[in-house]
């Protein structure tokens, strides 16, 4: 029996079928998806340059192998109950990500909205929290199995009589360095933290409205003039218009 040509055609046809179905069709359907205007602002917003560099640090060090970036809808897991998001994630949220780092394993918590849970604030509390967490996760989360990233920090000598750097990490107890040394975040660490601050998807979309239990107090249904930014100071970075300058670092 020799069905060579027939087998060959079958082999091509079967893979072509799945290629058309799972590669070509999605590309046709939403491969040209565009940013949308959500309450007067473009969504998803363009990441500031530093945060984009931080995304590269995130990818290079494989953060996505332990941290997912997708909030599951109600009924599939307890993502909303755990406070990992106000609404489930939709395709629109990832429009500007290259690569899209969904993650498949939750050894660590989901980071889709870490920028909302720990927003950049005036007192830099959360910035310091992130730096400490990256330098030595056990400082901020005792019992965590996240590896430390000492290579994202620089150990610098402080000359006598010279003041310590303003951004030196406050370290206490067993994590203290030797006297006259300080731990300063490198540019990679700063970029990574800027990226983490930029991780927020709480803009209500047509396909993903915010459930009512989260909207009490925050008037998301108000017409465009009343944006979410005006209501909650914690959300100031939530939807930065693409045109404005990047938020302070």
């Amino acid at each position: 029996m020799n069905h060579g040509p027939l087998i060959f055609l079958g082999i091509l046809f079967t893979l072509a079928l799945s290629w058309c179905g799972l590669v070509f069709a999605p590309q046709i359907q939403f491969g040209r998806q565009e940013v949308v205007n959500a309450k007067g602002q473009l969504y998803p917003p363009n990441r500031p340059g530093l945060a984009q560099q931080g995304g590269e640090v995130y990818r290079a060090n494989g953060c996505q192998y332990c941290h997912s970036q997708q909030v599951q809808p109600k009924g599939l897991g307890a993502d909303l109950e755990r406070g990992w998001g106000k609404r489930y994630s939709v395709a629109q949220d990832y429009l500007r990500d290259v690569p899209v780092m969904w993650g498949n394993l939750r050894i660590g918590p989901d980071l889709t909205n870490v920028g909302l849970r720990r927003p950049d604030d005036e007192t830099h509390t959360n910035r310091v929290w992130h730096f400490q967490h990256l330098y030595r996760p056990q400082i901020t989360s005792p019992g965590s199995i996240m590896p430390p990233y000492p290579f994202l920090f620089e150990k610098r000598q402080v000359r006598r009589g010279q003041p310590a750097s303003p951004d030196a990490l406050p370290l206490i107890g067993q994590y203290k360095t030797e006297l006259s040394y300080e731990i300063v975040p490198t540019s990679a660490a700063r970029a990574l933290v800027a990226y983490l601050f930029s991780l927020q998807s709480d803009t209500p979309l047509f396909e993903a409205p915010i459930p009512s239990e989260f909207t009490s107090g925050v008037d998301t249904n108000a017409p465009g003039a009343m944006s979410t930014n005006a209501v909650s100071p914690a959300l100031t970075n939530a939807v930065a218009p693409a045109s404005t300058s990047p938020p302070k670092q």
């Binding site: 999605p26 939403f30 629109q92 990832y94 429009l95 500007r96 290259v98 899209v100 969904w102």
Partner: peptide
């Protein structure tokens, strides 16, 4: 673009 990456 976007999530098509994940599908591919």
């Amino acid at each position: 673009r976007g999530v098509v990456q994940v599908v591919v």
